[in-house]
């Protein structure tokens, strides 16, 4: 049977999904990128291969998305390399055809996608600031001595969430420290943080956007029930969290790879091949472009990063 692999390599986590021609998820995995996208993908491939063991699946197309999509696209011979906004929208509309608003909060970025009749009609993404994203929540969880996985459950026990400045991570952090020191309860602070994330999101990304139900909330932070509840309180609507919400980018790009109609057979042996990247600064002008070369074994297979032709690296055919 034919299978389609989608990989979403984010700044914080790497997600992989294998689907069949009817978009059923046959295998999936979610693990930490830990600053090493190639290593994370190799690990991911091993896990997925194991999950597919015994089933007669042949991967005929790969799609990649997320901030390392290009690098991993080269590594896996992907037929589709797509930005995460489109990938998420496709993934969600495939599973929830009537969705009108997608809230998405990931490790480093957050976005809102507005959908009409199954098509993206508007979107926004945070630009300069990482306030109110997953990495902020996890560092604050660490500060409070709770694991980020428990964060949401603890937040739900609060009856009186503490007010925490939502405008900026730095302000939020000092506000939090201050509130803790004057004796606010931990669960109230945690619930307050969840609220702050939501306020920040709606004030920045969601500003001026037409938010209407059904709303789907996804991305790693959607697993946090505290944030989900804070969203529901803020918009006064039910917010749907799909059980595969954290995999939506990978799922979407797998669907796109399937829809592309292109096939490029993929073998899980890729996990065994030695890929490496080298970077150097192009000395030819004051732009000092950082040029990345990707090697498969000893063979140069791709390079990028040059702003002009002077820095172009010849790829041997």
């Amino acid at each position: 049977m034919k299978g389609y692999l989608g990989i979403d390599i984010g700044s914080i986590s790497t997600k992989g999904v294998v689907i069949d021609k009817d978009n059923n998820i046959l295998a999936s995995e979610y693990l930490w990128t830990e600053g090493d996208p190639m290593g994370a993908v190799k690990k991911l491939l091993k896990v997925l291969e194991k999950q597919l063991d015994g089933k007669d699946i042949e991967i005929v197309a790969v799609g990649t998305t997320g901030s390392a999509r290009k690098l991993i696209g080269v590594m896996t011979g992907a037929v589709t390399v797509k930005n995460e906004i489109t990938a998420h929208a496709i993934g969600t509309t495939t599973l929830h055809p009537d969705v009108k608003t997608i809230f998405e909060i990931g490790g480093q970025d957050s976005k809102i996608i507005i959908i009409e009749n199954g098509f993206v009609v508007d979107y926004a993404m945070n630009t300069l600031c990482a306030a109110g994203t997953g990495s902020f929540l996890s560092s604050q969880a660490h500060r409070l001595g709770v694991s980020v996985e428990q964060f949401g459950e603890i937040a739900l026990t609060s009856k009186n969430p503490t007010n925490i400045a939502a405008r900026c991570t730095v302000f939020a952090e000092s506000d939090l420290v201050h509130k803790a020191q004057i004796g606010h309860k931990k669960e109230d602070i945690i619930a307050g943080l969840c609220k702050a994330v939501v306020t920040n999101y709606l004030n920045n990304i969601g500003k001026g956007k037409k938010i209407s139900a059904p709303i789907v909330f996804q991305g790693g932070v959607s697993k946090n029930v505290g944030v989900k509840k804070a969203f529901e309180d803020a918009v006064g609507q039910e917010v749907i969290v799909d059980k595969n919400g954290h995999l939506m980018g990978a799922f979407g790009v797998a669907v796109l790879a399937k829809q592309s109609g292109k096939e490029n057979k993929f073998s899980f042996d890729t996990a065994e091949i030695n890929f490496k990247t080298t970077g150097f600064e192009c000395p030819k002008c004051a732009n000092h472009c950082e040029i990345i070369c990707v090697f498969k074994g000893d063979k140069l297979i791709d390079s990028w990063g040059n702003k002009c032709d002077n820095g172009a690296v010849k790829i041997p055919k």
Partner: peptide, 29 residues
Amino acid sequence: FSFDSQTSETGVKTRLEAFYDMIEARKHK
């Protein structure tokens, strides 16, 4: 788009690509 002195192009390209995808999709609406 707000620009300061950051130099990572990835974010800009991601948004432009998505913008193009969106415009393309709206055409067929």
